[in-house]
Protein backbone atom coordinates (compact mmCIF):
# COMPACT_ATOMS: atom_id res chain seq x y z
CA UNK A 1 0.00 0.00 0.00
CA UNK A 2 1.69 3.08 -1.26
CA UNK A 3 -0.24 5.60 0.83
CA UNK A 4 0.73 3.68 3.93
CA UNK A 5 4.40 4.11 3.11
CA UNK A 6 3.93 7.78 2.29
CA UNK A 7 2.22 8.43 5.60
CA UNK A 8 4.95 6.55 7.47
CA UNK A 9 7.62 8.51 5.67
CA UNK A 10 5.99 11.86 6.38
CA UNK A 11 5.51 10.88 9.97
CA UNK A 12 9.25 10.62 10.38
CA UNK A 13 9.38 14.41 10.03
CA UNK A 14 6.71 14.90 12.66
CA UNK A 15 9.06 16.76 14.97
CA UNK A 16 9.94 19.25 12.23
CA UNK A 17 6.27 20.07 11.78
CA UNK A 18 5.80 20.54 15.51
CA UNK A 19 8.78 22.79 16.04
CA UNK A 20 8.06 24.69 12.82
CA UNK A 21 4.55 25.32 14.08
CA UNK A 22 5.85 26.55 17.43
CA UNK A 23 8.35 28.89 15.75
CA UNK A 24 5.86 30.35 13.28
CA UNK A 25 3.14 30.77 15.88
CA UNK A 26 5.42 32.45 18.40
CA UNK A 27 6.84 34.77 15.74
CA UNK A 28 3.39 35.48 14.31
CA UNK A 29 1.90 36.18 17.72
CA UNK A 30 4.76 38.49 18.65
CA UNK A 31 4.54 40.48 15.41
CA UNK A 32 0.77 40.44 15.41
CA UNK A 33 0.14 41.33 19.03
CA UNK A 34 3.08 43.59 19.80
CA UNK A 35 4.86 44.75 16.70
CA UNK A 36 2.11 45.53 14.19
CA UNK A 37 0.19 48.82 14.44
CA UNK A 38 -3.50 48.90 15.40
CA UNK A 39 -6.00 49.12 12.57
CA UNK A 40 -7.19 52.56 11.47
CA UNK A 41 -10.88 51.67 11.87
CA UNK A 42 -10.93 48.84 14.33
CA UNK A 43 -8.09 49.72 16.67
CA UNK A 44 -6.57 47.00 18.82
CA UNK A 45 -9.52 44.70 18.15
CA UNK A 46 -8.17 43.80 14.74
CA UNK A 47 -5.44 41.70 16.34
CA UNK A 48 -7.83 38.80 16.83
CA UNK A 49 -7.75 38.47 13.05
CA UNK A 50 -4.29 36.93 13.36
CA UNK A 51 -5.86 34.00 15.17
CA UNK A 52 -9.27 33.94 13.54
CA UNK A 53 -8.33 33.92 9.87
CA UNK A 54 -5.68 31.16 10.11
CA UNK A 55 -8.09 29.03 12.14
CA UNK A 56 -10.79 29.44 9.51
CA UNK A 57 -8.39 28.64 6.64
CA UNK A 58 -7.11 25.58 8.41
CA UNK A 59 -10.56 24.21 9.14
CA UNK A 60 -11.59 24.56 5.50
CA UNK A 61 -8.38 22.77 4.58
CA UNK A 62 -9.38 20.06 7.07
CA UNK A 63 -12.65 19.47 5.30
CA UNK A 64 -10.89 19.15 1.96
CA UNK A 65 -8.46 16.61 3.44
CA UNK A 66 -11.40 14.76 4.97
CA UNK A 67 -13.30 14.44 1.71
CA UNK A 68 -10.25 13.48 -0.35
CA UNK A 69 -9.35 10.92 2.32
CA UNK A 70 -12.88 9.55 2.35
CA UNK A 71 -12.91 9.09 -1.41
CA UNK A 72 -9.52 7.44 -1.20
CA UNK A 73 -10.82 5.11 1.49
CA UNK A 74 -13.86 4.03 -0.53
CA UNK A 75 -11.54 3.41 -3.45
CA UNK A 76 -8.65 1.57 -1.77
CA UNK A 77 -10.10 0.55 1.62
CA UNK A 78 -6.86 1.35 3.40
CA UNK A 79 -7.46 1.42 7.19
CA UNK A 80 -4.79 4.02 7.92
CA UNK A 81 -6.54 6.46 5.58
CA UNK A 82 -9.64 5.92 7.65
CA UNK A 83 -7.67 6.66 10.83
CA UNK A 84 -6.50 9.86 9.17
CA UNK A 85 -10.08 10.81 8.25
CA UNK A 86 -11.21 10.24 11.82
CA UNK A 87 -8.36 12.36 13.14
CA UNK A 88 -8.89 15.12 10.61
CA UNK A 89 -12.62 15.31 11.39
CA UNK A 90 -12.04 15.65 15.10
CA UNK A 91 -9.36 18.29 14.61
CA UNK A 92 -11.46 20.04 12.00
CA UNK A 93 -14.37 20.23 14.43
CA UNK A 94 -12.12 21.78 17.06
CA UNK A 95 -10.60 24.29 14.65
CA UNK A 96 -14.03 25.19 13.26
CA UNK A 97 -15.40 25.76 16.76
CA UNK A 98 -12.42 27.92 17.64
CA UNK A 99 -12.75 29.89 14.41
CA UNK A 100 -16.44 30.49 15.14
CA UNK A 101 -15.68 31.47 18.73
CA UNK A 102 -12.94 33.93 17.78
CA UNK A 103 -15.21 35.23 15.04
CA UNK A 104 -17.92 35.91 17.60
CA UNK A 105 -15.46 37.68 19.88
CA UNK A 106 -14.35 39.77 16.93
CA UNK A 107 -17.91 40.36 15.81
CA UNK A 108 -19.11 41.78 19.12
CA UNK A 109 -17.01 44.98 19.04
CA UNK A 110 -16.96 45.47 15.26
CA UNK A 111 -20.47 44.39 14.21
CA UNK A 112 -22.02 44.98 17.64
CA UNK A 113 -23.48 41.49 17.73
CA UNK A 114 -22.17 38.04 18.60
CA UNK A 115 -24.00 36.33 15.83
CA UNK A 116 -25.72 37.19 12.61
CA UNK A 117 -27.29 34.90 10.03
CA UNK A 118 -24.84 36.03 7.44
CA UNK A 119 -24.25 33.66 4.53
CA UNK A 120 -20.68 32.78 5.35
CA UNK A 121 -21.36 32.37 9.06
CA UNK A 122 -24.37 30.17 8.42
CA UNK A 123 -22.77 27.82 5.94
CA UNK A 124 -19.65 27.64 8.09
CA UNK A 125 -21.67 26.62 11.13
CA UNK A 126 -23.54 24.05 9.06
CA UNK A 127 -20.12 22.61 8.21
CA UNK A 128 -19.49 22.30 11.95
CA UNK A 129 -22.86 20.53 12.33
CA UNK A 130 -21.92 18.05 9.62
CA UNK A 131 -18.51 17.43 11.20
CA UNK A 132 -20.10 16.80 14.59
CA UNK A 133 -22.71 14.46 13.11
CA UNK A 134 -19.84 12.68 11.35
CA UNK A 135 -18.07 12.16 14.68
CA UNK A 136 -21.31 11.05 16.33
CA UNK A 137 -21.97 8.56 13.58
CA UNK A 138 -18.57 7.00 14.19
CA UNK A 139 -19.28 6.41 17.86
CA UNK A 140 -22.47 4.49 17.07
CA UNK A 141 -20.89 1.74 14.95
CA UNK A 142 -18.98 -1.14 16.49
CA UNK A 143 -17.50 -2.72 13.44
CA UNK A 144 -14.31 -0.90 12.29
CA UNK A 145 -14.73 -1.52 8.58
CA UNK A 146 -18.40 -0.51 8.57
CA UNK A 147 -17.66 2.58 10.63
CA UNK A 148 -15.04 3.67 8.12
CA UNK A 149 -17.29 3.03 5.14
CA UNK A 150 -20.33 4.84 6.50
CA UNK A 151 -18.28 7.76 7.73
CA UNK A 152 -16.72 8.11 4.28
CA UNK A 153 -20.17 8.08 2.68
CA UNK A 154 -21.31 10.86 5.01
CA UNK A 155 -18.19 12.95 4.38
CA UNK A 156 -18.56 12.72 0.61
CA UNK A 157 -22.23 13.64 0.78
CA UNK A 158 -21.29 16.60 2.95
CA UNK A 159 -18.64 17.66 0.46
CA UNK A 160 -21.24 17.71 -2.31
CA UNK A 161 -23.71 19.50 -0.07
CA UNK A 162 -21.54 22.28 1.32
CA UNK A 163 -21.28 24.35 -1.89
CA UNK A 164 -25.04 24.01 -2.40
CA UNK A 165 -25.67 25.04 1.20
CA UNK A 166 -23.39 28.02 0.83
CA UNK A 167 -25.04 28.99 -2.42
CA UNK A 168 -28.59 28.68 -1.11
CA UNK A 169 -27.83 30.51 2.12
CA UNK A 170 -26.23 33.30 0.17
CA UNK A 171 -29.32 33.64 -1.98
CA UNK A 172 -31.56 33.42 1.03
CA UNK A 173 -29.77 36.27 2.80
CA UNK A 174 -29.14 38.51 -0.15
CA UNK A 175 -32.68 38.26 -1.46
CA UNK A 176 -34.12 39.34 1.84
CA UNK A 177 -31.84 42.00 3.06
CA UNK A 178 -28.64 43.45 1.78
CA UNK A 179 -25.74 42.06 3.74
CA UNK A 180 -25.68 44.42 6.68
CA UNK A 181 -22.16 43.76 7.68
CA UNK A 182 -19.22 43.66 5.43
CA UNK A 183 -15.61 44.07 6.23
CA UNK A 184 -14.55 47.53 5.23
CA UNK A 185 -11.69 47.23 2.86
CA UNK A 186 -8.94 46.15 5.15
CA UNK A 187 -5.86 47.24 3.32
CA UNK A 188 -3.43 44.38 3.29
CA UNK A 189 -0.28 46.26 4.03
CA UNK A 190 2.79 44.22 4.74
CA UNK A 191 2.49 45.08 8.44
CA UNK A 192 -0.66 43.00 8.53
CA UNK A 193 0.27 40.51 5.84
CA UNK A 194 3.51 39.29 7.43
CA UNK A 195 2.08 38.27 10.82
CA UNK A 196 -1.00 36.86 9.09
CA UNK A 197 1.16 34.72 6.81
CA UNK A 198 3.25 33.63 9.77
CA UNK A 199 0.18 32.60 11.72
CA UNK A 200 -1.39 30.89 8.72
CA UNK A 201 1.69 28.80 8.05
CA UNK A 202 2.10 28.10 11.75
CA UNK A 203 -1.51 27.06 12.16
CA UNK A 204 -1.31 24.73 9.15
CA UNK A 205 1.89 23.19 10.51
CA UNK A 206 0.30 22.82 13.94
CA UNK A 207 -2.71 21.19 12.32
CA UNK A 208 -0.54 18.80 10.33
CA UNK A 209 1.48 17.96 13.42
CA UNK A 210 -1.62 17.24 15.48
CA UNK A 211 -3.06 15.27 12.60
CA UNK A 212 0.00 13.02 12.41
CA UNK A 213 0.06 12.38 16.14
CA UNK A 214 -3.65 11.69 16.24
CA UNK A 215 -3.56 9.41 13.18
CA UNK A 216 -0.74 7.42 14.72
CA UNK A 217 -2.62 7.17 17.99
CA UNK A 218 -5.77 5.88 16.31
CA UNK A 219 -3.72 3.48 14.21
CA UNK A 220 -1.96 2.06 17.26
CA UNK A 221 -5.26 1.89 19.09
CA UNK A 222 -6.70 -0.24 16.32
CA UNK A 223 -3.62 -2.52 16.32
CA UNK A 224 -3.93 -2.86 20.07
CA UNK A 225 -7.58 -3.84 19.80
CA UNK A 226 -6.78 -6.43 17.16
CA UNK A 227 -3.98 -7.83 19.30
CA UNK A 228 -6.17 -7.89 22.38
CA UNK A 229 -8.83 -9.78 20.47
CA UNK A 230 -6.28 -12.34 19.29
CA UNK A 231 -4.83 -12.80 22.79
CA UNK A 232 -8.28 -13.19 24.32
CA UNK A 233 -9.32 -15.81 21.81
CA UNK A 234 -6.03 -17.68 22.39
CA UNK A 235 -6.63 -17.50 26.12
CA UNK A 236 -10.15 -18.86 25.75
CA UNK A 237 -8.90 -21.66 23.54
CA UNK A 238 -6.24 -22.68 26.03
CA UNK A 239 -8.86 -22.58 28.80
CA UNK A 240 -11.21 -24.83 26.90
CA UNK A 241 -8.36 -27.25 26.13
CA UNK A 242 -7.47 -27.88 29.76
Amino acid sequence: MIIHRVIRKVQRFQGWFGSGAALCLIAGLYIGLVDSPPDYYQGEVVRIMYVHVPLAHTSLFAYIVLSVGSMWYLWKRDPIVDNMCHAVAALGAIFTTLALATGMIWGKPTWNTWWTWDARLTSYSVMLLILISYLMLRTFIDDHEKEARYAAVLAILGLVDLPIIHFSVEWWRTLHQPQSFSMRGVSMSSEILIPLMCMSIGMSLLFSYMLMVRTQLLYLDRLLHAKKGRLLSQFHMSQSDS
Partner: peptide
Protein backbone atom coordinates in the same frame (compact mmCIF):
# COMPACT_ATOMS: atom_id res chain seq x y z
CA UNK B 1 -32.61 13.27 11.82
CA UNK B 2 -29.14 14.28 13.02
CA UNK B 3 -27.58 13.21 9.74
CA UNK B 4 -30.43 14.15 7.44
CA UNK B 5 -31.46 17.62 8.59
CA UNK B 6 -28.12 19.44 8.05
CA UNK B 7 -27.89 17.91 4.59
CA UNK B 8 -31.34 19.04 3.47
CA UNK B 9 -30.90 22.64 4.59
CA UNK B 10 -30.89 23.83 0.94
CA UNK B 11 -34.15 21.95 0.32
CA UNK B 12 -35.73 23.52 3.38
CA UNK B 13 -34.61 27.04 2.49
CA UNK B 14 -35.72 26.74 -1.12
Amino acid sequence: PILLLPMVIPVMIA
